[in-house]
């Protein structure tokens, strides 16, 4: 069976929203139809211009910028949630403390820890040493910014983290960029392994994933016995966005391998009852439930 979706990857996802610190209060941030929206900052671009002229940047706008920086960042897949039960709780106080720690000179302290005592340094070597120190400093600052971005995005809650992961996966799903393959294989493995544990009771370490290219949904087979047992699954990178991020991966005791007709709250999916079995089409219906951290936006699908 060939699945060639024309609809956007997020068609099976409802909108979600949360409150974030902004100025002296809290503002709503909403995810809707693949976009992060700031209802209380209708002209965010104008605010950015003002910020560039020396004004203070609103917390919501800072967050939206961070979101924009990471919509194709594969690190989002490495850090973010592997499933609804994978509890990640980052509070806004954690984000604030991490940012303050960076400003207090965490980077400088790190950089000084790399300095090695030298008895005498010739001028040319000293210049090179200084350049290295600057390089270390710059890399430290970039690392701190990246870390603070990630913490902010995780602080939005499970629903947003899953949607961002879906957006990242979608950005790389059709890419011919071979450099993304290891991260995509790891990302699918980490998530599918937990799904397979629930589906078959198999040890997650026994799940082997490869990327499927070309027509069709891929394949899934169970080989070996006991400690040599392996679930070998080949799926396209788009599975992460279209199936897993939409909460469809395990629906009605079936492993969903593709979406045939996307929609919310009703969709039709292609699913396996068991490894090696022929996939079947299932009509599924969703209701929205809370994520593990209490935020809304984690769909629960039933046949």
């Amino acid at each position: 069976m060939t699945i060639t979706p024309n609809d956007p990857w997020y068609s099976c996802l409802p909108s979600c929203q949360t409150q974030v610190p902004c100025g002296q209060g809290r503002h709503t941030v909403r995810w809707e139809a693949g976009q992060l929206r700031l209802p209380e900052h209708p002209d965010a671009e104008a605010e950015l211009v003002l910020a560039a002229l020396g004004g203070e940047k609103a917390g919501c706008v800072v967050l939206a910028e961070a979101w924009g920086r990471h919509t194709s960042d594969l690190s989002v897949l490495a850090v973010g949630p592997r499933g609804p039960a994978d509890e990640i709780v980052v509070s806004w106080q954690d984000v604030e403390e991490a940012a303050q720690a960076g400003q207090r000179g965490g980077a400088a302290a790190f950089s000084s820890s790399l300095r090695r005592p030298r008895l005498a340094v010739p001028p040319a070597a000293a210049a090179g040493h200084s350049a290295r120190q600057r390089q270390i400093q710059q890399e430290m600052e970039r690392a701190a910014e990246r870390r603070n971005d990630m913490l902010s995005l995780l602080a939005l809650g499970h629903g947003f983290a899953v949607r961002l992961a879906g957006q990242v996966a979608a950005a790389h799903a059709d890419s011919a960029d071979a450099t993304a393959r290891p991260a995509l294989v790891a990302a699918i493995t980490g998530r599918l392994a937990l799904v397979a544990e629930q589906w078959l009771g198999i040890d997650p370490d026994q799940v082997l994933v490869s990327l499927h290219h070309g027509p069709g949904w891929g394949r899934a087979e169970l080989t070996g016995k006991e400690r040599g047992r392996r679930l070998r699954v080949s799926l396209p990178a788009s599975w992460l966005a279209r199936v897993w991020a939409c909460g469809l991966a395990l629906t009605g005791r079936h492993l969903v391998v593709a979406v045939d007709r996307a929609g919310w709250p009703d969709a039709r999916v292609l699913a396996l009852r068991a490894p090696g079995a022929e996939p079947v089409l299932l009509d599924v219906h969703a209701r929205q439930s809370d994520g593990p951290d209490g935020t809304a936006g984690a769909p629960h699908w039933e046949v």
Binding site: T18, R26, S91, D94, A155, G294
Partner: peptide, 14 residues
């Protein structure tokens, strides 16, 4: 899990 969500009071120290 905090019913107020991640934006609510800080539930635990990382």
């Amino acid at each position: 899990p905090n019913p107020l969500g991640a934006a609510g009071p800080r539930p635990g120290r990382l």
